[in-house]
Amino acid sequence: MRRSMSTLLSILVIACGGRAENGARAVIQNKGSDTLITVAQAWAEAYSAVDAEVAVAVSGGGSGTGISAMINGTVDIANSSRKMTSREIEAARANGNDPVEHLVGHDALAVYVHRDNPVGRLTLDQLAGIYGENGTIERWSQLDVQVPGCTSDEIVRVSRQNNSGTFAYFREAVLDNEDFKLGSHDMHGSKDVVHLVAQTPCSIGYSGMAYATPEVTMPCVMGTAGDPCVGPSIETALDGSYPISRPLLMYTSGSPAGQVKAYLDWVLGDAGQCIMLELGYTPAMPAACVQ
């Protein structure tokens, strides 16, 4: 739903851009990560005040969408919440696009449970036991937790569709690249994960920290049992103490030049990074923001 809406939006933006071409207004195509989309849209909006000659058309759909657009050469900047794989980079090069990576920020990948769920802390091993192919944790009682409203005791796993950057990062960081256990509920967007977890007492899900609502809680996560248990926050993502925080990336084809370079420089400058901080993401650069 979100995707079709943002596609529509980008078509509108393109259409407007096309009409304004007489005024030499350039359009930067920016597509990809669902985690980054709120930031990308805020950047695009703010940038129109910085340089009225440039319109940034943002659409989402997931990191896979952005990366495949980069491979197919239909986008100027691809947003991704995971690194491109070597196979993807090769595929892009075969099409004459040489992807260059730019780190624009970090995001703590929060684990979400229903607000009535008393589980306060989880280890990475426990998460792997819940989500992994060889994991044996199927019931909340195995974690010594009794969840009000969940009489069946079954853990309902909420996950993401298999081309999402969030899915790929979770698999790499938590499951050590093992497969997911089949039967997870694969939602098509970060927001849907949080929405479903908020409604479903038995469930557990994962998504970017910025999608938190008062109806869900975020247990703290331990790297291994005995480590300090760290909750997701901007500070813990920045200093690396939160065990599952990931880089947020933008890819360009070749070294950026001209208006794309100007845009990226602005994104990585104080103005762009402060927008990121305001929206609940962790900046890549220390930024001096006016509170």
């Binding site: 759909g61 896979g64 969408t65 495949s68 491979i71 197919n72 595929a91 569709q161 081309n163 098509h188």
Partner: peptide
């Protein structure tokens, strides 16, 4: 519907 949009063409 969920996967086609995010897949590299021809893979």
């Amino acid at each position: 519907a969920a996967e086609l949009g995010e897949t590299a063409v021809g893979s």
